[in-house]
Nucleic acid binder design. Structure first.
Lengths: 206, 206
DNA sequence: CTGCTACACTAACGATCGTTAGTTAAAGTC
DNA sequence: GACTTTAACTAACGATCGTTAGTGTAGCAG
């Protein structure tokens, strides 16, 4: 009956993506109905099936795009590093792209960070693998800094989580119309991350 | 027909609370049905209404309890501070109770951190107020340290968020059977938070 | 023993869910 | 101008949702 396009490319499909992304991010996947999405686009629920095979297919389409853009941002930032970057350079670069993405693309970030559980088992596994790949980049930079003696931490794994997750949380509260620019925000988080990994010379209780 | 207890106190009510908390935290409020909860307890959905007036009443009961316990943990930790605590003492105390709570009570933490949107408008407002009150404690300690000159940060508000949120995220990944004890974990986060607020003497490029 | 309460049950209500079938109208192709 | 394709529609399916009504029964109070 209906064709089930592998990756719908019409203008209507993009409107569906936009509406679904916003509502999935704001209200959650299971609180958003196909009729909700359709009505945002100005069509009936049944017409969604001209563009996507199922509700889960919309979520997966959005999830895949979000991960692709997240990884693309990371790669772009890495490509712009100076020659022979220090671990500090690499850390600043990664934290900046991480925080900037979560500030600028908060809906995509919220989707990726809290709606994965709604995916089918197969898609869920792929998504988790992409997330692991993304997180590994941060971990490698931190490990490199530790090996080279410029970073110190009690626990590299936990510190990696902490840096990633304080950045992810940005998508929950940051508003571009607020007092901070994205650039301000990135500078703050770069500073925090750097301090988290810097040995404390402290204890000057002479 | 059914009495609608203000705060159900029977053993069955507690089993309902336990089952609902776990499923709300794991699957989300709107993905969990009354029949799901009932079947975990070993009764039928209609019997839930002998103990709670509605599905939202269960969520609100759990939310209120979770906030009360969170605030109680904080107050207990504050009460155990030494006399004339330094801002560093206060920070360590708050971070420890924060992280310990999110590690030990991950279901309650997940509820409070990601299921508030499912509450009724009135309850939602009360919950947000409780969260704001909790967060304010951290902010005050950080501001005190800045005023006294022992903490430095580019932006106190963002740093407060960062410290709180890296601790909240613990509820998403920490497992007591893993390699770290709760006590280990708290020590790591206390260290990270302290470093985030400590001036970098760095830049020894003599 | 009687009556009340607590708490489980079955059955069902109306609403809403994701999804499908079949129809219609417009646009594009030969 | 005839034909195919695209994408909207109406209508409805069966499932599931939160919830209510009414019933049965065990335990406890008098």
């Amino acid at each position: 009956m209906h064709p089930v396009p592998e990756a719908a490319i019409s203008a209507t499909a993009d409107e569906i993506r936009e509406a679904a992304l916003e509502q999935f991010a704001r209200d959650g996947y299971s609180s958003t109905s196909m009729r909700d999405i359709a009505s945002s686009v100005g069509i009936k629920a049944a017409s969604l099936y001209n563009h996507f095979g199922s509700k889960e297919a919309i979520l997966w389409d959005l999830t895949l795009t979000a991960f692709e853009e997240l990884l693309r941002c990371r790669d772009l930032a890495i490509a712009n590093l100076p020659d022979n970057p220090t671990p500090q350079d690499r850390l600043a670069c990664l934290v900046t792209s991480h925080v900037a993405f979560h500030a600028r693309n908060s809906n995509q970030a919220l989707l990726v960070n809290s709606q994965l559980a709604a995916l089918s088992k197969t898609h869920y596994r792929k998504a988790v693998a992409m997330r692991a790949q993304y997180e590994a980049t941060m971990r490698e930079v931190i490990d490199e800094g530790i090996t080279k003696g410029v970073f110190t931490t009690i626990d590299a794994r936990v510190t990696t989580f902490a840096i990633l997750q304080m950045g992810m949380a940005v998508s929950g509260w940051f508003r571009p119309e607020g007092p901070l620019t994205v650039s301000d925000l990135c500078a703050i988080y770069v500073d925090l991350a750097a301090k988290m990994l810097t040995p404390l010379p402290l204890k000057r209780k002479e």
